[in-house]
């Protein structure tokens, strides 16, 4: 298996790459990770991971700046149906529109908007920063073996915005932070996590292993 980990200057690639390697071992899948943004490499990949640390607008601009990147991603994911995982802002970019620092158009693969967190309780701080448990909202192979609710495993969040999907069926898991916060979304062969699986120890590795094994 060949996994393309997209490097478009948006950080966090080392830990994402290492976590994917660990996940492949756990999943019993042999393969390797190709780091970069070379369209030829991405065209040959079986799976694609788009990380992202930063502001929506800036990440979106960086993605557009790489020659041929968006075209090959669209071909691979939308035409050929290769499994795709977006992490944090990489997940947010799946939306139609992001509202961080003005409106920016996203990839539109998961219909919805990325809006500022607005927890009901005023004492709750934004960014939503730290470890939180998840609530299951849907069924999906990438959720296999994850534990939910108060006694469940924790995921590491670090964000001020989240993706509100247009269709409820696309929301697979939420975290509670003065109201539901979108944690995992999925549609077609695309999934996204708002939290950082590469920083989320057991839960993160399990989810990545599920992604590696997933055959939609």
């Amino acid at each position: 298996m060949k996994i393309a980990l997209i490097d478009y200057g948006a950080g966090n690639l080392h830990s994402a790459g290492k976590a994917l390697e660990r996940a492949m071992i756990e999943a019993g899948v042999s393969g390797h990770i190709v780091l970069g943004a070379n369209p030829d490499d991405i065209a040959e990949a079986d799976r694609i991971v788009l990380p992202g640390d930063g502001a929506y607008r800036d990440c979106r601009e960086n993605l557009s700046l790489v020659d041929g990147l968006e075209e090959v991603l669209t071909e691979q994911v939308r035409v050929k149906g290769r499994p795709f995982l977006g992490i944090c802002v990489g997940m947010q970019l799946l939306s139609d529109i992001g509202e961080e620092r003005g409106e920016t158009q996203g990839l539109g693969w998961i219909p919805g908007r990325v809006v500022a967190l607005d927890p009901k309780a005023r004492y709750l701080k934004v960014p939503h920063m730290g470890w939180n448990t998840l609530e299951r909202r849907g069924e999906h192979p990438v959720l296999d073996g994850l534990t939910f609710g108060e006694g469940g495993l924790h995921a590491y969040f670090l964000h001020s915005y989240h993706l509100l999907p247009t269709y409820a069926a696309d929301l697979l898991a939420t975290a509670d932070y003065g109201g539901p916060v979108s944690a995992i979304v999925g549609r077609d062969t695309v999934i996204g996590t708002q939290f950082h699986p590469e920083k989320s120890q057991a839960l993160g590795i399990k989810l990545l292993a599920n992604f590696v094994k997933w055959s939609p």
Partner: peptide, 9 residues
Amino acid sequence: AAEKFGAQA
């Protein structure tokens, strides 16, 4: 810095 990397960073 926040404009480039997001407030969360």
